[in-house]
Design a binder for these strands. Structure first.
Length: 495
RNA sequence: GGCCCGUUCGUCUAUCGGUUAGGACGUUAGGUUUUCAUCCUAGAAAGAGGGGUUCGACUCCCCUACGGGCUACCA
């Protein structure tokens, strides 16, 4: 049978990297088995809807190359793919459950229930709307049909699942059989007072109607698996298989990764920009780098290879490589993974993705962009680093690292810089290294110090790419200008 | 509190009863390099604890501890 899996986010905000990974795993699983990957928007909570988050989700998936065959914007045989457009389906299905006495109307108000909750809480217990108490509550279980009709006509009500005593055995492909005593379950609300279904009901109905074969979702759903099983059972439907993925945890501290962790942790939490907050894309990540890192968080193919593209991931993916325990997010490793992908690109490829970052260099050094790229390519962890690494090719240093200057001043700094200046004046920047070397030898000066001084004059700092090549790129006049400038600085400040 | 799931270096992980417990990120030292980075070499670094089962346990079982999740008319 052809595998059909779905990713079913709710559009209550931008997708974060946890959700992105769930989508990715669904996709890898489906494609590995030549199956279908479906996107479904679970927008049944009208209060939490966030504008544009539905399109954000689709954009983000598109960026990482995880594109659904069926979904809200592509359509498909089993649509609509937005739950808010499927209300009639849920109404139809809930009636089946009510008629078969597997679900019932409940008229208890929020106020009634919160009083009961408080009472239980004071006794150190937790209130549960379940089979042991429902007989004494305000619901249709003990009402006449006529009475029910009258009340649902003029009152607001919810529909609850009727959970009976017993043990529910569920199965998770990763964790095996999970047993739950029904007495800890409550009669979950299936249809809310606003007429819309809850997650539990809508997802079961949709997974069934959309012929989903394997449900792959986050571990936070594991506790409600029994409820979902009970709903399938009430309908007499065949269940799909279930896989509950381990959660992505905060890098430091405790708990699952949440949308707020990005700001405090200094790393992006969203794939794409949201409300001016840059995402991975804007930070200079390749989508291939991101998904490579994310794929290896909670899954691995064995072996020591760690760098894969999407195609390779699809080929290798399987549930036997899935991890059960949660995994802490590690931004350092994410950057390293990205760097590995970046290092495989040539300038044209890089430029196509990071044209924004290369723009200033291209306009200032139009014929040398490629050379500049090869000069700094291995230093790039993100696309943004291109700008950081090349600023000195756009403008001279605004100041000099004082500590380094002081250290260098143990030599005869003034003479050294005079000599560098005159060498460049005489011979330019070609064979600069050789000329400086013979100068160092003649005067018995440490060659390293000379190079450091040259670097300082050009960059202002001691870090950066090969300084000889950099000087060649800048050319004689610019290099000389910068050397002169630091010379003045030295004469004025250190006598 | 209750229920469920989990637990190998700081972090991500390999191991599917017999290994000097391997790799990667990070980290430390050395080398290459004019510097930072890259690259190369080396090092430190782990089976939560206690009971079983077994000739033998990181691996299977139980208990404890710890971590995580859920406990809404949110998903």
């Amino acid at each position: 049978m052809k595998e059909r899996v779905r990713f079913a986010p709710s559009p209550t905000g931008p997708l974060h990297i946890g959700g992105l990974r769930t989508a990715l795993f669904n996709y890898l699983f489906a494609k590995n088995k030549k199956g279908s990957f479906i996107l479904r928007l679970e927008d049944t909570d009208r209060n939490r809807l966030v504008e544009n988050s539905d399109s954000y989700i689709e954009e983000a998936l598109k960026w990482i190359g995880v594109v659904p065959e069926e979904g809200p914007s592509v359509g498909g045989e089993y649509g609509p793919y937005k739950q808010s457009e499927r209300i009639n389906l849920y109404n139809e299905k809930i009636q089946i459950l009510i008629d078969s006495n597997n679900a019932y109307y409940a008229f208890d108000t929020n106020e009634d229930l919160s009083v009961l909750r408080k009472e239980e809480e004071e006794k150190g217990l937790v209130f549960k709307y379940g089979y042991s108490v429902r007989g004494s509550l305000d619901n249709s279980l003990s009402m006449s049909d006529k009475n029910i009709k009258e009340r649902i006509a003029k009152e607001s009500y919810v529909v609850r699942l009727k959970v009976n005593p017993g043990i529910t055995k569920s199965n998770d492909l990763l964790r095996g059989e999970i047993e739950v005593d029904n007495n800890i379950l409550d009669d979950k609300i299936l249809i809310k007072a606003d007429g819309l279904p809850t997650y539990h009901f809508a997802s079961v109905v949709d997974d069934y109607l959309m012929k989903i074969t394997t449900v792959i979702r986050g571990e936070e759903w594991l506790p409600s698996l029994a409820i979902h099983d009970l709903i399938y059972k009430a309908f007499g439907w065949n269940k799909p298989s279930f896989i509950h993925l381990p959660l992505i945890l905060k890098p430091s501290g405790k708990g699952k990764l949440s949308k707020r962790d990005g700001l405090s942790g200094g790393f992006p939490i969203f794939p794409l920009e949201w409300n001016k907050e840059p995402g991975y894309k804007e930070m200079g990540f390749l989508s291939g780098g991101l998904i490579n890192y994310l794929a290896l968080l909670g899954w691995n193919p064995g072996g020591s290879k760690e760098i894969f593209n999407l195609k390779e991931l699809i080929k290798l993916f399987g549930i036997s490589g899935l991890q059960k325990g949660g995994a802490k997010f590690d931004f350092e490793k994410a950057k390293w993974t990205n760097q590995q992908h970046l290092s495989k690109m040539n300038f044209n490829e890089f430029d196509q993705v990071f044209g924004k970052n290369t723009a200033s260099i291209k306009s200032k050094h139009p014929s040398k962009a490629e050379e500049i790229f090869s000069l700094i390519r291995e230093r790039l962890k993100t696309g943004q680093d291109f700008e950081k690494e090349t600023v000195f090719l756009l403008e001279g240093p605004s100041g000099y690292n004082q500590k380094v200057l002081e250290k260098l001043s143990r030599n005869n700094l003034s003479r050294m810089i005079d000599e560098i200046e005159s060498i460049i004046k005489k011979t330019g920047v070609n064979s600069l290294k050789e000329n400086l070397m013979s100068f160092a030898e003649d005067k018995k000066i440490n060659f390293g110090s000379i190079m450091q001084l040259l670097r300082l004059s050009i960059v202002g700092e001691l870090s950066g790419p090969d300084i000889i090549i950099a000087a060649e790129i800048l050319g004689k006049s610019v290099t000389l200008e910068r050397v002169k400038k630091i010379n003045t600085h030295i004469k004025n400040n250190l006598s």
